[in-house]
Amino acid sequence: MKLRLFPQEPIGLNLLSQMAHQIALGTGTFSEILGAPASEHSRLVEDMHDHEAKSAELHFALLTHMRTSFLNPLPREDMYALSRYLNEAMGKLDAAADLVLLYKLERPPKRAAEQLEIISRQAELTVDAMRQLNNLDDLEDYWIEVLRLTKRAERTHRVWVADMLKDMKSAQYARNRDVADQLVEVTKDMRRIATQVGSIIVKES
């Protein structure tokens, strides 16, 4: 069955897609942080704060749009949930970068790069998915792939924690564990977005 919602006002979907794009940009900035000397961290974290601020701006723009628009391509509660999860994911990515700066982590573990790769892929898939929410064909593949990526991220997190327990002293472990926990929470927020999309697919089928 071909699934189609009412696409009269795609502005909300464009805003959601832009929010996902901020997460993709944020992963790029975080990757720069991992490869940069500590002297560059402050500047790059400010760039991350800019991504977070833009995400919040888009979130509030979407809320305003939903309040003032008569027709929306999705039920308001679904659009709000998607926007909130996207904004929370960006906030946690920003927090992880902030912790690298505050804790003066000069060489974050390589597992951080693996998590960023997963988040980046989740974000890329989500950018496209948000644009297609008024035509739900093929979005089931998006839902399943993001869930698969989140399982991979959780496995990476467990291995990362085990490695840190083995190789680090307690204070160093605590600082790096905070960053690891923030990054895996980003992947879980991306899973929440995909699960919300799955719920929309089921309701509209």
Rank of each mutant, 00 (worst) to 15 (best):
A53P: 01
T68C: 06
A53M: 09
E114I: 14
T68D: 09
S120D: 12
Q132K: 14
M66W: 00
R111F: 10
L82Q: 02
V45L: 04
L99C: 06
N87D: 14
A89L: 07
A61G: 11
E77C: 07
E52Y: 02
A123P: 10
D50V: 10
A123Q: 04
S42A: 14
E77V: 15
E57C: 07
A56K: 07
K110H: 07
D50R: 15
S42P: 04
E117L: 14
L99Y: 05
H59K: 11
V100N: 03
D128M: 06
L133K: 00
A113D: 11
P75A: 03
H65K: 07
Q115Y: 02
Q115P: 13
I118F: 01
A96I: 07
E106L: 05
S120N: 14
H59R: 11
L105G: 04
L74P: 09
F60H: 13
E114N: 12
G91E: 02
A89H: 00
D94K: 11
D78S: 13
L105Q: 03
K54R: 10
L58N: 00
A61E: 13
A97F: 01
F70D: 01
A95T: 12
L105D: 02
E114M: 09
L44E: 01
D47P: 02
M79Y: 00
E106C: 07
F60M: 06
G91D: 13
D47M: 10
L44H: 01
M66T: 09
K104T: 15
L62W: 00
D128F: 02
R43F: 00
D94C: 14
H49A: 12
H59Q: 08
D137V: 15
A56G: 10
P108H: 03
N87I: 05
I119W: 00
L116D: 09
L86F: 08
H59D: 08
L116M: 10
L86C: 08
L44R: 07
L63A: 06
R84V: 11
